[in-house]
Computed example of a mutant assay.
Amino acid sequence: MTALQLGLDTFGDVPTDDAGRVLTHPEAIRQVLDEAVLADQSGIDVIALGEHHRPEYSVSSPETVLAGIATRTERITLASGVTVLSSDDPVRVFQRFATVDALSGGRAQVILGRGSFTESFPLFGYDLADYDVLFEEKIELFHQLLAEQPVTWSGTTRPALADADVFPKTAGGLDTWVGVGGSPQSVVRAARYGLPLMLAIIGGEPERFRPYVDLYRRATEQLGTPEGRIGMHSPGFVADTDAEARETYFPSYQKMRNTIGALRGWPPLRRAEFDHEIENGSLYVGSPETVARKIAASVDALDVSRFDLVYTAGPQTVSARLRAVELFGTQVAPMVRDLLASRAGSPA
Results as ranks from 00 to 15, higher is better:
residue 2 T to G: 07
residue 75 R to G: 12
residue 241 T to I: 08
residue 59 V to S: 05
residue 119 E to V: 09
residue 201 I to T: 08
residue 34 D to Y: 00
residue 113 G to M: 01
residue 136 E to D: 15
residue 4 L to S: 03
residue 174 L to Q: 04
residue 104 S to K: 14
residue 177 W to T: 00
residue 174 L to T: 02
residue 133 V to T: 12
residue 178 V to F: 07
residue 105 G to F: 00
residue 52 H to M: 05
residue 188 V to H: 04
residue 10 T to V: 06
residue 325 V to H: 06
residue 193 Y to L: 12
residue 84 V to F: 03
residue 239 A to Y: 02
residue 122 P to D: 11
residue 11 F to M: 09
residue 229 R to P: 02
residue 142 F to C: 02
residue 145 L to F: 10
residue 128 L to I: 14
residue 328 F to N: 06
residue 94 F to V: 06
residue 139 I to T: 13
residue 179 G to L: 13
residue 100 V to N: 07
residue 53 H to S: 01
residue 314 G to L: 08
residue 202 I to W: 11
residue 143 H to R: 13
residue 61 S to G: 08
residue 137 E to K: 03
residue 235 P to S: 11
residue 150 P to D: 12
residue 143 H to Y: 12
residue 147 A to Y: 03
residue 296 A to Q: 07
residue 98 A to Y: 08
residue 328 F to M: 13
residue 34 D to R: 15
residue 83 T to L: 05
residue 175 D to E: 13
residue 243 A to Y: 05
residue 7 G to H: 06
residue 10 T to Q: 10
residue 230 I to F: 01
residue 42 S to A: 15
residue 292 A to T: 13
residue 212 Y to P: 03
residue 261 G to P: 13
residue 183 S to H: 06
residue 62 P to D: 12
residue 207 E to D: 15
residue 105 G to T: 07
residue 2 T to S: 04
residue 64 T to R: 05
residue 342 S to H: 08
residue 236 G to F: 03
residue 314 G to E: 09
